[in-house]
Simulated assay, not measured.
Amino acid sequence: MSTVEEPDVRTWNFPRGTASVAVMVEFAREHGVPSERILAGTGLSGPQLADPDAQIPAETELAVVRNLLREVTGVPALGVEVGRRYRISTFGIFGYACVTSPTLREAISLALRYYRLGFAFCTPIVESRPREVVTWIHHDTIPADVQRFLAERDIVAMHRVMSDLLGARVDFTRAEFAYPATDQAERLEALFGIRPQFDRAHTVFGIDPDLLAQPLPQANQPTWAVCVAQCRDLLHRRSARTGIAAEVRDRLLPGSGATGFTAPPSFDALARTLNMSPRTLRRHLDAAGTSYRVLLDEVRQTLAEEMLTATPLSVDDIAIRLGYAEATPFIHAFKRWTGTTPAAYRRTVRE
């Protein structure tokens, strides 16, 4: 039997911090390229890169990547070398939440839950099987001119972070890439502990499932709880909605009908109420870095937390009011949003 976990959003087009850009600027500087050339056309400056609260559109980071590829030449396996520069500290409070997690499994689940606090452009789907944990790397929506660089950067960064979390190098059980081979195979083998395969149907890597249960060297339950709360607050602030996203979110709020609570509208019904086609609405939401699913989850999480905190409603009643047919899918969704069950959340906030 296998289980599948995926990020809270299936797009790379979300606002992000500047720490990733700072990594690439520093890498370029070490290779003789001044920061002005790497930041050309982005409107970014040095002080902004040091501001932990600064946010930039994903397209701005793509512009930095394109500048890096143009300006830094003669470096073999550029995506691999840049990916090796990403460490736990690069990710700020998000990174500290991962490093203080009880196990690698918990850290991976948290990383997927707060995916938008990272810098990846690839979408990782993690499938836990009895004999292997397989991570499917989706990079087909990334612009073609930067796709390979970002795929290699993101995978190497993931490998580096997992190794940092465990305090020892993680050897992959497989490493496959959905594009032609290059002269980077030996470098990747030295990093991953296995010879990579190219021209495969999918980009994917695997690890030993026993690694998931290993306690992390810096696990600390009280610190972890504080860091997770800060991640949740940070994500809420970054997710403040305006424009079409705000309008969609407002219309997803359940109302009271003649028979009581009414479920949120379907995507197609929502598009009709906004006088646009589903395709047009989807395009507008993509441009805003979000989706119907993400906005619906945000609304449901907010309402669920309010009802668990301020009402005596049972978990079954809350599930029905949020548009679920029964409690089980709501409990699974709530754990994906918050890392805990509705009952445990209610006990915590009332203590």
Results as ranks from 00 to 15, higher is better:
252 L>F: 08
148 R>A: 01
315 V>M: 08
252 L>K: 06
71 E>Q: 11
73 T>D: 02
76 P>Y: 01
167 G>V: 09
171 D>H: 15
275 N>V: 04
236 H>P: 00
315 V>R: 06
50 A>R: 13
302 T>K: 06
338 T>N: 15
38 I>G: 01
111 A>W: 00
166 L>F: 11
204 V>T: 14
175 A>P: 06
38 I>P: 02
116 R>F: 03
151 A>T: 15
167 G>R: 10
154 D>Q: 06
164 D>E: 15
335 K>D: 11
57 P>D: 07
221 Q>A: 15
164 D>T: 03
164 D>M: 10
191 L>M: 08
169 R>L: 10
112 L>M: 14
53 D>E: 11
319 A>E: 02
97 A>S: 14
182 T>H: 02
298 E>Y: 01
28 A>R: 00
303 L>P: 02
191 L>N: 00
263 A>M: 07
81 E>H: 03
162 M>L: 13
29 R>A: 09
222 P>C: 10
303 L>A: 08
196 P>R: 03
248 V>T: 05
29 R>F: 01
136 W>K: 11
289 G>C: 05
83 G>N: 03
313 L>W: 12
46 G>F: 01
277 S>Y: 04
291 S>E: 09
205 F>Y: 15
8 D>V: 10
140 D>V: 09
271 A>E: 00
107 A>N: 09
341 T>H: 09
50 A>W: 06
208 D>M: 13
246 A>P: 00
247 E>W: 03
158 M>P: 02
101 S>Q: 05
268 D>Q: 12
221 Q>L: 13
349 V>R: 15
61 E>W: 05
179 Y>R: 14
42 T>C: 04
317 D>Q: 15
246 A>F: 08
310 A>T: 14
106 E>Q: 15
130 P>E: 13
89 S>C: 04
183 D>W: 01
116 R>K: 14
36 E>R: 10
219 A>Y: 07
94 F>S: 02
14 F>Y: 15
292 Y>T: 05
213 A>K: 12
163 S>V: 08
228 V>S: 05
130 P>A: 10
90 T>I: 07
173 T>N: 11
199 D>F: 06
108 I>F: 06
213 A>Y: 12
279 R>M: 11
89 S>I: 06
251 R>Y: 04
61 E>S: 04
217 P>N: 13
266 S>A: 13
63 A>D: 04
164 D>R: 08
28 A>N: 00
296 L>C: 06
188 L>T: 03
258 A>N: 08
292 Y>R: 05
98 C>Q: 14
284 H>R: 14
208 D>Q: 13
88 I>Q: 10
143 P>A: 08
11 T>I: 09
142 I>Q: 02
83 G>T: 02
98 C>K: 12
27 F>N: 00
198 F>L: 09
234 L>Q: 11
173 T>R: 14
233 D>H: 09
92 G>N: 04
80 V>G: 04
295 L>Q: 03
264 P>S: 08
37 R>M: 06
190 A>R: 10
280 T>L: 12
97 A>P: 07
169 R>Q: 15
126 V>G: 08
85 R>D: 02
194 I>M: 09
61 E>C: 02
342 P>T: 07
176 E>K: 12
212 L>Q: 11
251 R>D: 04
151 A>Y: 00
74 G>V: 01
8 D>Q: 11
198 F>R: 04
